[in-house]
Structure formats: structure tokens, C-alpha cells
Amino acid sequence: MTKIFGHRGSAGTHPENTMISFQQAFCDGADGIELDVQLSKDGIPVVIHDEKVDRTTDGKGLVKDFTLKELKQLNAVYKFKKLYSHAEIPTLEEVLDWAARKQTLVNIELKNSIIPYSGMEEKVLELILKYDVENLVIFSSFNHFSIARLHTLSPSIEKAVLYMEGINKPWDYTKWVGAQGIHPYIKAATPTIIQRSKENGVPVRPFTVNDEKTMLRLFKAECAGFFTDYPKRAVLIKQ
């Protein structure tokens, strides 16, 4: 059964990577959410996509240069100011507390390809263990060194490599890195890649799938899942 993940929540219709967006994805019937994690100046895992706060908040500068208290003072409503007056940057802890209560899947993307956040893997794992959500979490990252590190630290939690370009035999490569699945850019998720990966026991979850024809193709191929900015659209098609 193909799982629908709300990409940064319901990012097509709500402020991305906020509790407003995650709650909407859940209400829309998504199987899970996808979010991005970075570290604040004081080392707290926070949920935001860009290395800078400029695009999605009313602040300017690098996430790593703000304390959690300072990040919480920013308004993350992004391009949805007409719909919402305010939205906070959530901590990963806040999201996992909510996910544990809702028992919804959470894909945690570690954003450590550009800025090498020291100790990020340990800090995130500590929270996952605290809220007992190992069975709900999937890790992903474009930083495959980080995936390998996570495999060493916690072999039992599912992991997947993120990638944009073609990889030769990605179903083999991901296992070599220490992961179980692959999360390719949708254009790299060819029918052959999906089929061969399935034959090798490797789940494929492409990103970011927003058009209905592609959604239908993935449902028919019984792809493991996909990430979409419009989970409500995907749920309606799936029915």
C-alpha cells in the first residue's frame, strides 16, 4: 500500500514546516509527514528547511546563528500571511510529541549537507527514544555520511538516501551505505528503478509529487510511498 507523506506538512496550502501544516496533513488523511531538521545556536533540533531563515520567516540570517528563543520570536507564516497571522518554527521535540500522540509516520530529513551540524544525529535520536517513536520514524538525508553514522548509532530505525541524479543500482548502493530505502527526485524514479528496487526489497519514496498523473502512476506501480505538497489531493486520488 502506497504511503502518502505530506511534504513539510501540507506545504502547498499552509506555512511549510509548521504545526499548522503538519496538523493539516494529518487531517487530510496523509499516512505521515516529512520535515527538515537543523540545529539552533544553542544546539536544539528545530524544524526548518533552508539554512537561512530569510525565505520562510520575517527574519534574516543563518539558523545556526539564532538561539531557540530568538527563532521562536520569528513569524514563519511564509506566503500565507492572508490566511494566518502567526506561526512558530517548531522544535523537533514538539513535533515528535504530537506525532507520538497521533501515531503518524514522520520522515526526518537531516539538513546537514551544507552546514555540518556537530552531534545532530545523537540529538535527534535522543528525542526519538524519549518519545518512543522508533517505529514511526524514517530518516533521510542528502548527506550519506550522516546516514552511515545513523546506521552505526541506531541500526533498527529505517533510513533512506536522498538523491537528485541517477545512481547505478540504487537498491544496492543504499544497503552499502547502511540504509534500507531510497528517496529519489521524482524524475530519477523511473518505472524500472521502482520495479528493480521492489524486487530487491528496497522501498522507493520519490519527492516531490504534485501532479495527479504521476500520483496515479505511483499508486499503480505500488510504490512504497511518495512526498507531496498536496496530501489531500493524493488521498482523494488514492480512494
Rank of each mutant, 00 (worst) to 15 (best):
N210I: 13
F226Y: 13
E109G: 10
F226C: 06
G178R: 09
G9W: 00
K102E: 14
I48P: 00
I89Y: 10
D65S: 11
L218A: 08
D211I: 08
D31E: 06
D65V: 00
E109P: 13
T214A: 05
E134T: 12
T228F: 09
R233P: 01
A100I: 01
K72W: 02
V209G: 07
S141R: 05
W98M: 11
F226W: 11
T190E: 03
G166Y: 13
I114M: 09
I114N: 07
V202A: 06
E158S: 08
G201I: 08
L236E: 15
F26G: 00
K81R: 15
T67N: 04
I237E: 09
S140N: 12
D65K: 05
K187T: 14
F145T: 02
L71S: 03
P184G: 05
V235L: 09
P45Y: 00
L125I: 11
K72L: 08
S197L: 10
V235S: 06
L162P: 01
W98D: 07
V133T: 15
Y163D: 09
A87M: 11
N135V: 04
L150Q: 10
D229R: 04
G32E: 02
P170G: 14
P170N: 14
I20V: 13
S140M: 06
S21Y: 03
D31N: 14
A221Q: 13
Y84G: 07
F139C: 04
